[in-house]
Structures are given as C-alpha cells and as structure tokens.
Design a protein around this nucleic acid. Structure first.
Lengths: 106, 106
DNA sequence: ATGATATTACAAGTATTGTTGAAATATGAA
DNA sequence: TTCATATTTCAACAATACTTGTAATATCAT
C-alpha cells in the first residue's frame, strides 16, 4: 500500500454513511450484502448507496459481485488491515504509545 | 472516541500535506516543531500550514504551544492510537484478518 | 514606541465532494 | 417479448474543502 492508496482509503472511511456501510458489511463478512439491503440498513436512497459504495470499492475496501439481479458487496478485511498498518507503520513509525492506545500488546 | 471524532480524524489524515506534517511531527516527538519549520520541511506557504495544522488540531491529532514568537506543534500519539483502535474495534469488530494484516499478533 | 519576525485570519476564487430525482441498463420471470 | 426488480448513470445543484495572497496580530529586540 502506497501513500495515495492510503489517502484514498482514509478519505473513504471519513464519512458517516460509508462508515455505516463498512460496519454493516463487517457483520455480514463472507456473505456480503446487496445494494438494496445495505440501503435499508443504512437508510439511504439507491443512488446514494451506489455513490458511497463505489468510493469504498475504488479504495479497495469493498469488493462486488453480481448474483443474478443483485450486486453483492463484501468488505475486504485485508485492505482494512493494510490501511491501519500504513498509518501505524509508515506514519507513526510503530510508535509505542500509538500501539498501546491502539490496543496492541507487543 | 465517538464516531464523529473518528470521522474528523480520518478526514484530517486523508490529505497529502497533512500526512506529511504528521510524519514529520512523529519524528520530532516531544520536541515538536514550529509552523515555519514545518512549512520548510513540507514545502508549503505559511497560511497553508496554518490551515492544515488547524485541521489536525481540531481532530485532536496535534497540540500547540506558544514558545516566544513561535508556535510549537506536537503530534498526539495517544489520539493517533485511538483512531486506529476505533477503526479496528468499532468498525472491524476486532476481526482476526484485519488484525493480522495490521501486523497485530494477539 | 519602533521595527523585525512568526503566525493567524480573512476574503476571493477554484476544486472537489455529496445529494437528489429521473432516466437508462441489466437480469430474471411470465 | 413484455413486465417487474435491482442497480447504475447522469445532470443539476448544494455544500465543503483547498489554495492563494494580503492584512492583521503577537512577540521580542532595540
């Protein structure tokens, strides 16, 4: 993960609706969820879901797969971890205080 | 840390100049650095530094202290850790894959 | 007080991002 | 093919964020 990828991911995460989408998709894990179902959970119109979920997908935080009439979105756990690792390592130089406050032991 | 604080912090981190400022202040640690010195390192005009460093300060990621004619800025390591912890815990439910990709053992 | 230095505040303009509703596309069922 | 459902695309608009240069403020030294 390079700087511009990290910036895109951080920007994608810095929005209430998108954070709600992420949280919901995390609970769905491998099952994922359709745009329509996501829209009901986060209470947003279809075009809004497309807009925000596209931002998450561009950032690599979410993947999509068409399943018949629906498009199923899934969270990309690896990418979420990479973003956190980028901030921790490339920005904070694995600072001990940051790691402790982040809840990391070693 | 609540959701809106996390969103503000993530937004603050999702900008090239601000990320450069953070990286620089991390290397300076407790010593911190003045606005002018930061401006030279990240190659930005004074008003630009004020604008971006203010965003970081509003997000609690940086603190400031006047020392004679200069204002010294310091990174807030605790807050950096809290943001990462928020994403890891409140958004990713401490998912094992996320933790592994983030470089966390336990 | 005056002048020099460091920083911030402001205003104007530009750019980017987000919202909304309507039209277009894709898929499956009758 | 025709209809219904699911999603995307688009255009117009609103709201934020960023940049730039200039003026204002704060501090220190003379």
């Amino acid at each position: 993960m390079n700087e511009s990828q990290a910036i895109e991911a951080l920007a994608a995460l810095s929005h209430e609706t998108r954070l709600r989408i992420v949280r919901h998709l995390v609970t769905r894990a491998e099952a994922g969820d359709s745009a329509g179902a996501i829209g009901e959970v986060v209470d947003a119109a279809p075009s809004k879901i497309t807009f925000h979920v596209s931002a998450l997908e561009r950032a690599g935080l979410v993947s999509s797969e068409r399943v018949s009439r629906q498009i199923v979105y899934r969270i990309n756990f690896e990418q979420m971890g990479r973003v956190l690792n980028y901030v921790l390592t490339d920005c904070c130089a694995n600072n001990a205080t940051v790691m402790t406050c982040c809840g990391i032991k070693s």
